[in-house]
Simulated assay, not measured.
Amino acid sequence: MRIALHGNVFNEEVKPCIQQVIGFLQANGIEIIISKKFSDKYVQSFSQPGNFEIFRRITPSHKVDYVISLGGDGTLLETVSLVGKTETPILGINTGRLGFLATTPKDLIDQSLKDLLQKNYKLDCRTLIKLETNADIFKQARFALNEMAILKTDSSSMITVHTYVDGEYLNSYWADGLIVSTPTGSTGYSLSCGGPIVLPHSNNFVITPVSAHNLNVRPLIVSDLSEISFKVEARSNKFLISLDSKSESVDSYVKLTVRKEDFQAKLITFNHLNYFDTLRQKLNWGLDLRN
């Protein structure tokens, strides 16, 4: 069995978790390969080479059975980008803060790894959003687990995002930006901008304006079978496009379309965790003396 590791934070609190994971896998005869970023941090933190095979992106030739993400939700989003269309199952171990996606806590590392090796887990298949554009951006990784966002580049002027759903005009959003999120991303940036929480397998996208300059504009839920396209006007003739944690500046002539990606992100979950538990814990629902 081959397992890949990815992570990018190696502080004193996280280092014991990394040693615990590597030690467990080696003790069980698992072959380990690590991401380039993980390798660089490993050498800096432990002052010794790990003698592991290094990858920059998972490909079928790596013959990886699982990928373990060691960090928070941002690290797991990076891991999804590294896995791409191979759809290799991802286990997110939360050594960060929130842990909406990386749901395995540090105190359950050994038990979770045992369950993984014994195949006592479920695969939670999450929809990805794909960006199609005539600009040379994001290279091979034009997809996201959480959202695609169109954002202004400065703090002085808003942008206008003319939006079309399946070729039909929807609206012109005068705003600081516009988010199209997956159900997974509905608890992220979209939520902070007033968007609704959508359950993971609802087969929808959420269109959420960022600081809209029209008070009657509200988030909109559309089918994830839809094709959503945009024309952007900006005074500076530049705006930002982001896919999860990646962002690039582009010119206003660039054509943008988003749709559901052909492949999915497969997240590993265990029986002791479920989505509603995560919502209550991470959003502090039910914190009332009456409960």
Rank of each mutant, 00 (worst) to 15 (best):
I159A: 05
I159L: 09
T160L: 10
T160S: 09
V161T: 12
H162L: 09
T163D: 09
T163L: 09
T163M: 10
T163K: 06
Y164C: 05
Y164L: 02
Y164E: 11
V165R: 12
D166P: 03
D166N: 15
D166G: 12
D166I: 11
G167L: 12
G167M: 12
G167A: 08
G167R: 13
E168K: 15
E168S: 15
E168F: 13
E168D: 14
E168T: 14
E168Y: 11
E168V: 14
Y169D: 10
Y169H: 14
Y169K: 13
L170S: 11
L170C: 07
L170R: 03
Y173E: 07
W174V: 09
W174M: 06
A175H: 06
A175I: 02
A175D: 10
A175K: 00
A175N: 05
D176C: 08
D176L: 09
D176M: 05
G177M: 07
G177Y: 02
G177L: 06
G177C: 07
G177P: 04
L178Q: 01
I179W: 04
V180K: 01
V180G: 00
V180S: 05
V180E: 01
T182E: 10
T182H: 06
P183L: 03
P183C: 03
P183Y: 09
T184W: 08
T184Q: 05
T184V: 10
S186V: 05
T187E: 05
T187K: 04
T187S: 14
T187M: 06
T187C: 07
G188L: 01
G188Q: 04
Y189Q: 04
Y189V: 01
S190T: 05
S190K: 02
S190F: 04
L191F: 15
L191A: 07
S192P: 08
S192M: 04
S192N: 04
C193L: 02
C193A: 15
C193G: 02
C193K: 00
G194M: 11
G194L: 12
G194F: 03
G195Q: 03
P196L: 07
I197W: 09
I197D: 12
I197M: 13
I197S: 06
I197N: 07
I197H: 06
V198C: 11
V198T: 09
V198I: 15
L199S: 10
P200I: 05
H201K: 12
S202V: 02
S202P: 00
N203I: 00
N204L: 11
N204E: 10
N204R: 07
F205S: 07
F205E: 12
V206S: 03
V206C: 06
V206G: 03
V206K: 00
I207E: 10
I207K: 02
T208A: 08
T208I: 09
P209A: 05
P209R: 00
P209I: 08
V210D: 02
V210K: 00
S211Y: 13
A212E: 01
A212V: 09
H213V: 07
N214R: 12
N214F: 05
L215T: 10
N216I: 11
N216P: 00
N216D: 04
V217I: 15
V217T: 14
V217F: 01
R218P: 01
P219H: 10
P219G: 12
L220C: 08
L220V: 14
L220Q: 13
L220F: 11
I221L: 13
I221P: 03
I221D: 06
V222D: 08
S223P: 00
D224I: 02
L225N: 14
L225S: 14
L225W: 00
L225Y: 02
S226R: 04
E227A: 15
E227M: 14
